[in-house]
Amino acid sequence: MVKIQVDRTQCQNFGSCVIEAPNVFSLNANDEMEYTPEADDSELDNVEAAVDVCPMQAIALVLRS
């Protein structure tokens, strides 16, 4: 299981994460980022890429077995 945390005080809804991990992150109708705080292990690479590309560096990845 991949556990994800987003610092909402930092996030500015760029949506870069949506491109890298569309199963985990999305932009809603108001252009606000939404995400699932837990994802399958198969999403690990995508979520890591999302962490890397976030311009605000607002995403953190917490791994759980």
Binding site: G15, V18, I19
Partner: peptide
């Protein structure tokens, strides 16, 4: 300017 979902549609 703003309208991020709209911008992303063209990526």
């Amino acid at each position: 300017i703003g309208m991020r979902s709209e911008v992303m549609k063209y990526r």
